[in-house]
């Protein structure tokens, strides 16, 4: 007989693992990837491939030569970061900028804190915001969607603003919302993804399909999305009721920009969000309010990534302040 093994209970383990969760997220992003390739052509493919490869490479190099720990490249987290980074940039972004973004994401956003699980901020968002601030021109000249088979995609001759950009610019010039709406794609077009924007954020439908998959696989929970969407709808709804000439309706806010992407794929990132249900609700609420504040009154047309990063910074505080309800905490009157 073999030597008996002794360990503490429990002696069985569930079938969840970090790897399964991370690859689950990647599978969930496949529809959005396909849509982006469909609308932005080979440029999207190029950005995806380079972002993923660069992220994996940086992870491997840093883990092997700087941290000198066991290789973590298989756990899928670098892959997720790579795809998310690609989703957050326009399809005509120069390669060198993308590689810098990957370095900032993995190297500074994640590995400098000690690798997966230690990073206070969502790595892909760190990279995205770094690029947005450093290379504002390249990061905000979005190619107009061009169907794959009408192919002009590689040259990217035509660039245009996102719906949110149109809105912000138009309002500054004193136009009303009603006038501006005529310049935009219809809601159906926006849902499908036929709008200007970063790779992954254009198609709400594809993102929702992925999100449903993640819900079914229990990779994400309901708290953050519900609180995030809820607060965005309520907040923008109030503004819209006050003055529909100045403020756009909530439905527009939901389907445009990076909201869907941010809510389902980045605000639900486990590492940088609070732990308990209550904490997640607060987190989602904060994200929603900040997003609307930045969109409506801020300098940038889009606020999802800033909102999530700011709330990431609050996550430890939220963890301390919002504990789960303990069993038997409430004193029962006899």
């Amino acid at each position: 007989m073999n030597m008996l093994i002794v360990s503490g209970s429990p002696h069985i383990h569930g079938d969840t693992s970090v790897k399964k969760i991370m690859y689950g997220v990647v599978y969930a992003m496949i529809p959005a990837m396909l849509v982006s390739v469909y609308f932005f052509g080979l440029g999207a493919l190029r950005v995806l491939a380079i972002s993923i490869l660069a992220c994996l490479l940086f992870e491997w190099v840093i883990q092997k030569y700087l941290i000198k720990g066991p290789l973590t490249i298989n756990d899928g987290s670098a892959l997720v970061t790579g795809v998310l980074l690609a989703f957050n940039v326009p399809s005509n972004l120069p390669i060198w900028i993308l590689i810098i973004g990957a370095f900032v994401s993995i190297g500074i956003g994640k590995m400098s804190f000690g690798g997966l699980g230690k990073n206070p901020f969502n790595p892909a968002l760190v990279g995205r915001v770094f690029l947005l601030i450093s290379f504002p021109v390249q990061m905000t000249s979005w190619p107009v969607p061009k169907l794959l088979f009408g192919c002009q995609a590689l040259t990217d001759a035509i660039t245009g603003p996102t719906p949110l950009g149109i809105l912000k610019g138009g309002l500054k010039m004193g136009k009303t919302v009603q006038e501006l709406m005529t310049e935009m794609p219809s809601y159906v077009q926006e849902l499908l993804g036929n709008q200007g924007g970063s790779l992954g954020e254009v198609s709400a439908i594809a993102l929702i399909i992925g999100a449903i998959y993640m819900f079914v696989r229990k990779i994400i929970t309901w708290e953050v999305p519900v609180a995030y969407f809820g607060s965005v709808v309520v907040f923008t709804g109030i503004l819209w009721l006050i003055d529909p000439m100045l403020y756009v309706n909530p439905a527009f806010h939901l389907v445009t920009g990076g909201l869907m992407l941010g809510v389902f794929y980045m605000a639900t990132d486990m590492v940088s969000t609070p732990l308990s249900s209550k904490g997640m609700l607060i987190f989602g609420l904060g994200c929603g309010i900040l997003t609307v504040v930045i969109r409506v009154w801020g300098a940038y047309p889009e606020g999802v990534s800033f909102a999530i990063l700011i709330m990431n910074a609050f996550a430890p505080l939220i963890n301390m302040g919002f504990k789960p309800k303990r069993f038997g905490e409430k004193v029962i009157e006899a």
Binding site: V18, I21, P274, L275
Partner: peptide, 11 residues
């Protein structure tokens, strides 16, 4: 592995 702070243990 490292804790990924998923909060499953709390759930």
């Amino acid at each position: 592995k490292n804790c990924i702070r998923c909060g499953r243990c709390i759930k």
